[in-house]
Design a protein around this nucleic acid. Structure first.
Lengths: 336, 336
DNA sequence: AGTTGCAATTAAATCGTTTTAGTCGAATAT
DNA sequence: ATATTCGACTAAAACGATTTAATTGCAACT
């Protein structure tokens, strides 16, 4: 069925000239190589007539570039990362690049495998959401290979561009709101992952609690990433029973909050009667609560766009400028 | 910073032999080409010592294969497609393939652009969620290029493998349940897209309504895909006010249902007092309803897996067997 | 007239791998 | 002793595009 693919040679024959000329024209270097305007026209006409599509493998082999960027996320089926993926895809396609995605599941070994398989494909640049303990892997990638932009989390010891939320400020601001509203018993639910965004969220909470002399109420519940659906229920129920009185839960991520809300509902606890909620990220569920809830919306597409633009600047400009872009969260309050 | 990349030639030099031998060994053709076992060992040792990674561009150029598959979805930021994307990615990576994704937004022009840009990259095979009016585009791709598997929707006029839900049966079964529970006034909310899954869901509903002599209650609300957040509210409110008595809404997709539930909540309507709900797909929201709700869960990862396996079978086996795989939905009932 | 200069074109090398067609010596067969 | 086979290996072409160095005419200058 496949009618042999059209090469530059076919064009050359049809137009009655050498391959070189065709290549010059097709790369927009007619002027530079002083190609006769008539010749240029002939080439373009022939290329269109034959419906020529350059062979990317050949171009890559020659140039060492693949016009492809690699994006490694935690999990592309997580809505947060799916939206990021989408915004990166949009920008890349406008620039004529394609994107390959990989999911690390917060697992450093998977991350390492992904990086090595992508880097073997001669990817031009990377956008990476670094998992725990991925410092060495990323460092060695940075040493030998293409530009890298870190996303959602930074690694201070590495001199790399990154795009992150202003996590510390957001978390502090959220805690402050709760305190202003009269809450003292504020518990944070967070992952036990050693990644910058989580650590900063923890620290923002802690800092504000201390600043407001609520040291003795500080309680950070660290949840293991892959045990959210199993062992989390006891943690939440325990926290609900711990003390009497006005109570608030601060959730470091969407997924933790969602699971907690399900547990609350399952056991008949009510928001805001039993507890008030403040969560990072937006979730559709939030639209069904009209009081006792607030959330910190992240500029998700902004992350993808900023990271993609940063990467392309490094890729094309060549100027390896290291930047950290820090975006702000928006606090939405529903009668809290 | 880049220490020149290692080629097969470097290995050949280090091991003191020709490139050919190295290639034979590295491709596991030692036996076929009767390479001396000692030589084989030497090659492998040298390759490992130099940390050799084959240049994919060169391999592609030579073989015409890219070890890459293209996946075109409606919108990768939609959780349904994100989960499919994830399951395809997992299978592909196990087989040593990478995946490039594109989102068509149900727009035939975007789909066409995506296909042409992916096909120019010499993609080995495609998994496509066909949008409306994409028949011609896909047909011409099928004629000139690699294997295609259609996903989520089929196009009867094209002889292509596809993986879909048994939409007609699912929709009929759902309608039947509602009727058994005593509902007569059952309205369907569906997209006005001419794609097989939607049309079959419409038809399953209609068929069952007729079979149960409820012809005069048949009402299909067709919503325009990109106006879900704007013009949909009036449709829902209108339907709620139309008749008195026991009422049920059947939603053809997750996104329609989610939007409707938000509207219900916003205007103070209650489930099941004002209306009962039956939706395709699962949504986290559903966990917050304990009565008057049922949903048809689709085997989402199953879609991705089946499609990927089908594609790889065609890709490697070479046998261009055309199969339609039809998966069943699971009906979950919450006190309806 | 002979050199120079320039516009326009082309041949050929190159990127890294795979594969075909051979080479070469040693072992076996006649 | 010569022909045949076979094991082990190699040279070189091919994939398609880009780019450097070289080659044409032809006009312009001294």
């Amino acid at each position: 069925m496949q009618k042999r693919t059209i090469t530059i040679k076919d064009i050359a024959e049809k137009a009655g000239m050498s391959c070189s000329l065709v290549s010059f024209v097709l790369n927009g270097k007619s002027v530079q190589y002083k190609v006769n305007p008539d010749t240029t026209k002939k080439v373009l006409a022939a290329a269109k007539a034959l419906n020529y599509k350059p062979n990317l493998a050949a171009q890559s082999l020659r140039s060492g570039k693949t016009k492809t960027i690699g994006v490694i996320l935690s999990d592309i089926s997580n809505p947060f990362f799916a939206e990021i993926a989408r915004s990166i895809e949009d920008i890349a396609s406008k620039r004529g690049y394609t994107v390959v995605f990989g999911s690390s599941d917060e697992n450093p070994d998977k991350l390492k495998n992904l990086i090595s398989s992508l880097s073997a494909r001669g990817i031009d640049g990377f956008i990476i959401v670094p998992s725990e303990n991925s410092e060495k892997t990323i460092k060695s990638l940075a040493k030998e290979k293409a530009p890298i932009v870190l996303l959602d989390r930074k690694i201070n010891s590495l001199k790399l561009s990154s795009v992150v939320l202003n996590n510390f400020e957001a978390s502090k601001k959220a805690t402050e709101l709760l305190i202003k509203r009269g809450f003292k018993d504020i518990e944070l639910f967070s992952y036990n992952l050693k990644i910058s965004n989580i650590l900063e969220r923890d620290s923002g909470y802690e800092t504000q609690m201390k600043a407001s002399k609520l040291d003795k109420y500080i309680k950070i519940n660290k949840i293991s990433y892959d045990k959210l659906s199993t062992e989390f229920e006891d943690v939440v129920l325990g926290a609900l029973k711990s003390k009497k009185g006005k109570k608030a839960f601060l959730f470091a991520t969407n997924s933790i909050c969602l699971n907690a809300l399900k547990i609350l509902h399952k056991h008949g606890y009510k928001v805001p009667q039993d507890v008030s909620i403040l969560s990072f990220d937006y979730s559709d569920i939030f639209d069904f609560y009209s009081e006792g809830l607030a959330y910190l919306e992240q500029p998700i597409s902004g992350f993808g766009e900023a990271a993609a633009n940063l990467l392309f600047d490094n890729l094309n400009g060549g100027s390896p400028s290291i930047k950290t872009i820090s975006l702000d969260a928006t606090l939405h309050i529903k009668n809290i």
